[in-house]
Design a protein around this nucleic acid. Structure first.
Lengths: 195, 195
DNA sequence: ACCTGAACACCGTTCAAGT
DNA sequence: ACCTGAACACCGTTCAAGT
């Protein structure tokens, strides 16, 4: 029985930034952002809360920055798509699903914290539009419009599907959010045209 | 010297929900959401923090609900507009300005808290579209698409104009956000058509 | 190098008490 | 009816100490 070097004396995997972020995301997804505390995060990692500061010197701020990066940095990819419209459509659907899976991170995304986390995503959208023949300025506008729509629509979905939103559904009527998002996406994409 | 009845023995205006919300919004706008605490709010109202609970029995949750309602409940109004497109355009510009003025409230808006706060706004958008001849289903889609775009774009603006976003501007290039929003708004509105 | 334990300043909230 | 003061359980973070 050879002890593996990456297993320490307490017989548990060592703390890494990746494990910390994943554990934090697990707490947010399961219990909500409000219940993510350094002490609870420490518990879930089987470590004292103070140990986390050794890996994230800037503390909770750095943890939240990492969560935003982990969720928001999902660039668009044109491989396997039938043209740039299809590529953007696929990306939008996937990005929306990602935001809804981690809806607890949405409030962090709109704080302006870790703005660099979105750079890769924005540039990938612009690149796909550019390759589709859309002029530079129009591509920049379309990229922000599309990304803004996806983030904002996901926010409305969180609001509309909240367990305590019965009164809203009574007033505004029931909504098929998948269909609603798809139709809205058409609305946005339909006026994006190559030069 | 007749003492006015609404001035109490300590010579200060009585606590009301309106004054509490306004004071809280003032703290958020000036110092950020993270510095809004019940104790600081009490200080700014020249009252002990515990006095606030007499007016907001559900405590800070109720305060945050009230803040969302105060900022997000701004319905569209067609009076004085040159047609429904102009009315929606004006509303979108005003709503965006409102969100940017109170950017610290944006994270609260996307939590799904107090979902009823947006009902009036959503219904007003649908009504203007309906009066413009847009069929019911298309109006519902357009309303959510427009509102989603405005909220999402405001989030991107907060991100792009953050003081610490120098690296982002270096990578993605400088942005005229007023022009960018206006162009994005055109993109969204251009495919909304009466039946 | 990595983690712990005790401590500090703060937080939201409850509750009995004051006026 | 409206507000206060003391108290409680919790929070993020620092720092000296352990291994």
């Amino acid at each position: 029985m050879v002890r593996q070097p990456q297993i320490n004396a307490q017989n548990r995997p060592p703390l890494t930034i990746e494990r910390i972020i994943e554990s934090a995301l697990h707490i947010i997804d399961g219990q909500g952002l409000g219940r993510l505390t350094m002490r609870r995060l420490g518990d879930s990692l089987e470590v004292e809360a103070m140990a986390i500061y050794h890996h994230l010197p800037r503390g909770k701020e750095q943890l939240l920055d990492g969560l935003v990066a982990h969720v928001a940095a999902a660039p668009a990819d044109a491989t396997g798509a039938a043209g740039w419209r299809d590529a953007l459509r696929r990306w939008a659907m996937a990005y929306r699903a990602r935001l809804l899976e981690h809806a607890g991170v949405l409030p962090l995304l709109v704080t302006g914290r870790n703005p660099a986390a979105l750079t890769e995503t924005v540039l990938s959208l612009r690149e796909i539009l550019r390759q589709g023949g859309v002029p530079e300025a129009a591509a920049a506008t379309a990229a922000h419009t599309l990304l803004g729509f996806v983030i904002g629509h996901a926010s409305l979905e969180v609001r509309g599907t909240a367990a305590w939103a019965e009164a809203v559904r009574a007033m505004e009527g029931p909504v098929d959010w998948d269909a609603r998002f798809s139709a809205g996406l058409d609305l946005v994409m339909n006026s994006v045209n190559p030069g």
